[in-house]
Amino acid sequence: MSIARLHDLHKRRMGRNLGVGLVLAAFIVIIFGLTIVKIGRGDFSTNPGAPGRAIEETSNEN
């Protein structure tokens, strides 16, 4: 009788789980990155004096 910890099935599932894990990690990085960029540009700012707003308003005037 042989008891092996890893069956081929487990290897397949390992690959699949790893893939899903990497996709979720990439998703977090993307959301974090987008948030940083958008906050940096002042997209979410309600303050008319925020840097992003000032640039937007200047470009609208042109």
């Binding site: 910890r5 069956h7 099935l9 690959g15 699949r16």
Partner: peptide, 19 residues
């Protein structure tokens, strides 16, 4: 107890690349 036994459907179980 043997986990080396053939598991039905193991060969056709989808991998990440299939998705």
């Amino acid at each position: 107890l043997s986990t080396n036994a053939k598991v039905p459907g193991a060969e056709t179980e989808a991998q990440f690349g299939d998705y």
